[in-house]
Amino acid sequence: MQIAYVYGSKWPSEGPAGSFCTFTCHGLANNTNENIYLFASKNTDKDINEVLKNYYFLEPLSNLKIKLVDDSAMIGRVTKFYIKAFNKIRKLIKKNKIDAVITRKTGFLPYMYFLKKIYGVKIFFETHDFYLDMNRRDEDDRKKKELFEKIFLPKVDGIITHQINLRNLYKEYLPQQNYCVARTGIREVIKVDNSFENEYLGYIGSLKKRKKISDILYALARVKNEDLKLLIVGGRNNKRVDEILSLAQDLGIRDRVKVTGWVSRKKVEKYLKMMKIGMVPLADSFFNRYLTSPMKIFNYFSHGIPVIGTDLPTIREIVTDKCGLFYEHDRIDQLVYAINKLDSSEEVYNKFSNNVVERAKELLWDERGKKILDFINS
């Protein structure tokens, strides 16, 4: 099965979506001898294989074809990309080089539907959001996306989700549709020796207030082990960094909190090796309850790091009771208890850490690619 995967945003990019699409397509290509095409907006003049090696740390594959579309324009850039990608895919279909099309872009659904109607190719929607019923959301500016999903999702050959909760949400509205749950992946599993001896609670990612990083600070001020510290990997917004450090100062733990600022992928790997426990605090919201699949969990899992997260369905289904502990939203006392428990003994810690390594082996990008291929071929 030859597949075109339409991403649409800039490639390469620092955002998680660019990594997600690149690793997904690499996983697809690694599970077939046929060609996998990734269509993205041009953001480099460098050699594609050089970018794969040095930016994404992936081994280039002869059947992974990155098709970068020059969509530079003052206005209408997205529409320009869709039209150019549509025409390129159409030409490949005519040459019998594409059998199926996947997109994660709601705006590309009409174009994909026309490809199915005209040429008979299979079409699939990979969803990371939900617009079918905007009454469930706190926004009112996505009516076009809501309309597109209502019109075109019943017509696609299948919907791919990255977690069960999102699949179940769509099934409430489209119970007859075909679904595939293919989780966000891990590139490789690297077990860090003696990570119980590490001194850092770790957090990777955005510092937005809905991430509830303050929960970790309040808990750190109350844990038994005063040698524990907090390593925050991220921070583009200087104002938000200052707010976090100011709170640490007020709590008397400023000397135990380090914020790196935004760092390269290579440095993320370095910091992961310094972490003892991976933290996933989240506010209880529609997005966090139904849509998110935090990449930080997969980062932690790739190094055998046990996780403590807010007790939300989206976190619990990935982490499971064997790989981490959970606390109710805004229950700092429960968070303190969870940290103390994982930090209580090497025996307790290693039990969780070993389970994380085994769980991580089920979540590799290649496994994701295999699952999607099986779904498309079924």
Score class of each variant (00 low, 15 high):
Ser9His: 15
Ser9Ile: 14
Cys21Ser: 14
Thr22Arg: 00
Thr22Lys: 00
Ala29Ile: 09
Ala40Asn: 04
Lys46Thr: 08
Asn49Pro: 00
Asn54Phe: 01
Ser62Phe: 11
Lys80Arg: 15
Lys84Asp: 13
Asn87Val: 11
Ile89Tyr: 00
Lys95Cys: 13
Ala100Glu: 07
Val101Arg: 00
Thr106Gln: 08
Leu115Arg: 04
Gly120Ile: 08
His128Glu: 10
Tyr131Pro: 08
Asp133Phe: 10
Glu146His: 09
Phe152Asp: 09
Ile159Pro: 00
Thr161Val: 09
Lys171His: 11
Glu197Asn: 14
Tyr203Thr: 03
Arg210Phe: 13
Tyr218Ser: 01
Asn225Leu: 15
Ile232Glu: 00
Ile232Phe: 05
Ile232Arg: 06
Ile232Cys: 06
Ile232His: 03
Ile232Leu: 09
Ile232Thr: 04
Asn238Tyr: 12
Ile244Gly: 08
Gln249Lys: 15
Arg254Lys: 14
Arg256Phe: 07
Gly261Lys: 00
Ser264Val: 13
Ser264Gln: 13
Met274Trp: 00
Met279Ile: 10
Phe286Arg: 08
Leu291Arg: 02
Pro294His: 06
Met295Gln: 14
Met295Trp: 14
Gly304Arg: 03
Gly309Ile: 04
Thr310Ile: 13
Pro313Trp: 08
Thr314Arg: 02
Lys322Ala: 04
Cys323Pro: 04
Glu328Phe: 02
His329Asn: 15
Ile332Pro: 03
Asp333Gly: 14
Asn340Ile: 09
Asn340Glu: 11
Lys341Phe: 10
Ser353Ile: 09
Glu362Ile: 07
Trp365Pro: 00
Arg368His: 11
Ile376Thr: 01
